[in-house]
């Protein structure tokens, strides 16, 4: 890999890993709420979580600009109070990737939480476990395959994220130009077909690698019967 390609790959990995790590606990919390709790507005929450999956990514990026941009409702406050800004910044690419990955991660985790027999939680309670202990010792470990699957899907989605990122964080070399944005940029320049092809191969290898790693993790923790997908 050339130095420029290396920069792109490292940036993409940084953005995707941070996006997944930050989104993971949020997604698990939402998945648990939707799977296990009955409360008013649950359907609405479910719909909101799925929104980035169904609306055009460009629209998600635009909404992020409105909310988190320098003049946005939350964005202006963050900038004034903490000097934090997401626009033109790799953290903005991570926010866009995380938001786009959220619905996929919630879906995977929700399925695995729903698959945990609630009666096992009841059994744990009769044995003396508080609700929190029962969650930590029963629900959480038994939904681990879903967490791994969610993380993998989220990582792959983040790695491929394009529309929301370019809209919200822009396309700045070394800062927000992740693999898909670099491939798109290369396509705009005549004569860079081989560069594009090399980046495309790197993207495929990274995504396959993520799949294999998470499959291996789940097998190691759950035995040969468990799979990520």
């Amino acid at each position: 890999m050339s130095g420029a390609e290396w920069t792109i790959v490292m940036l993409s990995l940084k953005v995707s890993i941070v996006a997944v790590l930050v989104t993971l606990p949020i997604a698990y919390g939402l998945a648990w709420l939707i799977a296990r709790r009955r409360f008013p507005g649950r359907m609405l929450l479910d719909a909101l979580v799925h929104l980035p999956l169904v609306i055009p990514p460009v629209v998600t990026g635009w909404l992020l600009l409105i909310v988190l941009g320098r003049n946005g409702a939350i964005g202006s406050w963050l900038f004034e109070q903490f000097g934090i800004t997401f626009v033109f910044n790799w953290t903005g690419a991570a926010v866009a990737a995380g938001v786009m990955a959220l619905p996929l991660m919630v879906r995977a985790m929700r399925l695995s939480i729903e698959a945990v027999d609630r009666r096992l939680v009841g059994a744990a309670r009769t044995l003396g476990a508080s609700p929190v202990r029962a969650f930590l010792t029963i629900t959480l470990p038994l939904s681990l395959p879903g967490i791994a699957a969610g993380a993998m899907l989220g990582f792959a989605r983040s790695l491929g994220e394009f529309g929301a990122t370019i809209t919200f964080a822009a396309n700045i070399a070394g800062e927000t130009r992740t693999l898909p944005l670099a491939i798109y940029t290369g396509l705009q320049v005549p004569g860079s077909e081989s560069d594009v092809a090399r980046l495309a191969v790197i993207a495929i290898v990274l995504s396959l690698g993520a799949l294999l790693v998470s499959e291996w993790l789940v097998r190691r923790s759950q035995g040969a019967r468990a799979h990520v997908l």
Partner: peptide, 12 residues
């Protein structure tokens, strides 16, 4: 009382 305070030995 919540189940963990009742201390039932429940064999399902």
């Amino acid at each position: 009382l919540p189940p963990e305070q009742r201390r039932a030995g429940y064999v399902f």
